[in-house]
């Protein structure tokens, strides 16, 4: 139950529209926005110290920070993070390659569209987490079902957005390129790919969000290593501090990958200013 709720919240975070260009904020406003989060943490700490919040329900912020340092120092956290990161990277590369390749084939050739688009449109309505039981039957509980789940999640947003991006290119621009005698490959390089890029990057950001979400779900279902294992193991011993540390790392990793894509967007799409 708590899992579905978390998924819905995360999905809500992922599907939000691309951010507006940030409003210039005054120094005071930046400060003002930090007041309430800091206050919440402070109250949380006070309640924990006063014994109102049981550490088996939720550990105190200071204990969580201390635990995080320990986990970093003994290498557990780094190792778990790298394991999880590797799963996401592998699933993302596989799913991304499949999604974009299918989108390019469907986007450029009418035959490809007829062959690829209908099944993709049908499959995308499947909630891919619902496939977990099948994946477990097919692949067992090792690395394969996790990576497959992540790849599935990544594939569809990239397919849909890249396909729409290619189809959204103004035919008149392709015609202008033809009037300049550009070859097929040159038109692809100078018109189609840059023209489809904005929408593809939107898909990339969506699919990265889903990749992390899929990782969390897959690791929560079963894991013998990685952040999910760390969290599940901590649950056995009611170590809520470790659980919070693991969740924080998940969140930071998601933010970091999103930030990378955003930075790339700012550079690659500078022409839209």
């Amino acid at each position: 139950m708590s899992l579905t709720l978390g998924a819905a919240q995360l999905a809500g975070r992922i599907d939000r529209p691309p951010p507006r260009p940030p409003r210039p904020r005054s120094r005071l406003n930046v400060f003002a926005r930090w007041v309430s989060p800091v206050a919440i943490v402070a109250i949380w700490q006070l309640l924990s110290s006063a014994g109102v919040i049981d550490p088996r329900t939720l550990a105190a912020p200071v204990d969580i920070a201390r635990r995080a340092l320990e986990l970093v120092e003994d290498g557990t956290l780094i190792e778990a993070t790298l394991t999880s990161l590797q799963r996401v990277a592998l699933g993302f590369v596989i799913g991304g390659a499949i999604g974009t390749t299918l989108a390019v084939v469907a986007g450029l050739w009418r035959v490809g569209e007829h062959a690829i688009d209908p099944p993709m449109q049908m499959l995308r309505t499947l909630p891919h987490f619902g496939l977990i039981p099948l994946f477990i039957i097919w692949f067992g509980i090792g690395e394969t079902p996790k990576i497959t789940l992540i790849a599935m999640g990544v594939c569809f947003p990239l397919y849909l957005n890249t396909f729409a991006g290619i189809r959204g290119i103004d035919r008149k621009m392709i015609e202008a390129a033809r009037s300049m005698n550009l070859t097929w490959g040159q038109r692809l390089r100078h018109v189609v790919i840059p023209g489809a890029l904005p929408q593809t990057l939107t898909g990339l950001r969506q699919s990265l969000g889903i990749a992390w979400l899929s990782l969390i779900v897959a690791e929560t279902v079963s894991a013998k290593s990685g952040l999910g294992y760390l969290i599940n193991d901590a649950r056995e011993f009611l170590e809520t501090d470790v659980i919070v540390v693991g969740l924080a790392v998940y969140a930071l990793l998601g933010l970091a990958t999103d930030g990378v894509v955003r930075a790339f967007e700012r550079r690659a799409l500078a022409w839209r200013s």
Binding site: D170, K172, M173, E175, A176, A177, S179, M180, N181, L182, T183, Q186, H190, V191, P194, G195, L197, L269, W271, R272
Partner: peptide, 26 residues
Amino acid sequence: TAVAFQEPRLLPWRDVRENVALALLN
């Protein structure tokens, strides 16, 4: 032959010089 259309049909993702140079790609 070369054409200039009713709408300029420039590639928005290439700067002005690159748009012109594109006609010489071959």
